[in-house]
């Protein structure tokens, strides 16, 4: 699915990601944890092609394609999805409108027929129900006046409709109440499939009780400093990150 080799990336000439390698196979869930400012969001931005985030060396292979060679919208159409840490508002553009355009773009890119307005509407209603958002959210402006938790659930709804092959969730659990956390986890688990992979960025082991990862990685200072299974998250919860920094040093 995704193979990152010796990736270095910088923002405004400042190197943030340093020699990072990671392999994500189809169907796997990888959790990425690590201290604030470690470069977790930066990694998501580089993967999704956000302007200003420049890969200076290394390679990224996504489903056999050279990811770094693709425009951000093409990456999205190929099935790379980023659920934002801070979803932005687009006043006046309805959720529905954005989603229909998004789904149309993805489907036409992959050679699927365009969905009729009625079929799309049906899908969208189901998705909003799955994340426990009232249908009125479909008509509202994108994230316009949404609460923090509503914005996060809206991201998951978009993810469900886009049917991506690789989902990157950047702190989707931050700011969620306990019920919403379960809603999000249920959404993700329902989407699990042998040909879909997830990278879940989180600060809290709690999320990983609901979304059980195959691997847990610790990102510090732009590098993966430790990888392990689910138990690593528990260990981090107990001990924090400083022991790792000592270990690396």
């Amino acid at each position: 699915m995704l193979t990152i080799k010796d990736l270095c990336a910088s923002v405004e000439d400042k190197e943030i990601i340093r020699q990072l390698s990671l392999e994500v196979k189809p169907g796997e869930i990888h959790a990425i944890m690590g201290p604030n400012g470690a470069g977790k969001s930066t990694l998501g931005n580089v993967l999704s092609g956000r302007p200003g985030y420049e890969a200076t060396s290394g390679t990224i292979d996504f489903k056999g394609l050279d990811l770094l060679d693709m425009d951000p919208e093409i990456r999205a159409r190929e099935g790379l999805f980023l659920a934002f840490q801070y979803p932005v508002e687009i006043p006046g553009v309805s959720n529905m409108e954005l989603l229909k355009a998004a789904v149309d773009a993805r489907r036409s890119h992959t050679g699927q027929p365009e969905l009729s307005a009625i079929d799309f509407m049906k899908m969208a209603r189901e998705a909003s129900k799955a994340v426990d958002l009232d249908q009125s959210f479909l008509k509202r402006g994108v994230n316009e006046g949404f609460s923090g938790g509503e914005k996060k659930r809206n991201e998951i709804m978009q993810m469900m409709l886009m049917e991506p092959s690789l989902c990157i969730l950047d702190e989707t659990d931050s700011g969620l109440d306990i019920d919403a956390l379960q809603v999000v986890a249920r959404g993700v688990n329902a989407m699990r499939s042998p040909d879909r992979s997830f990278i879940v960025v989180t600060h809290y082991q709690r999320l990983l009780d609901f979304i059980v990862p195959d691997y847990v990685h610790v990102l510090a200072n732009g590098r993966i400093v430790k990888s392990g299974d689910k138990s690593l998250a528990l260990e981090l919860e107990a001990k924090g990150y400083s022991w790792l920094e000592d270990e690396v040093a």
Binding site: S48, G49, R50, P51, D71, P72, E73, A76, R77, F81, L82, F84, P87, V88, I90, P91, G92, V93, S94, E97, L98, L99, A101, A102, A105, R106, H109, G141, V142, Q158, M162
Partner: peptide, 20 residues
């Protein structure tokens, strides 16, 4: 970038934002 990450090309993104 939100629009592009959802598969829209930049021109479509601008026109959608402006229409909104």
């Amino acid at each position: 970038f939100l629009c592009q990450q959802r598969g829209l090309d930049p021109e479509k993104a601008v026109s959608m934002i402006v229409n909104g």
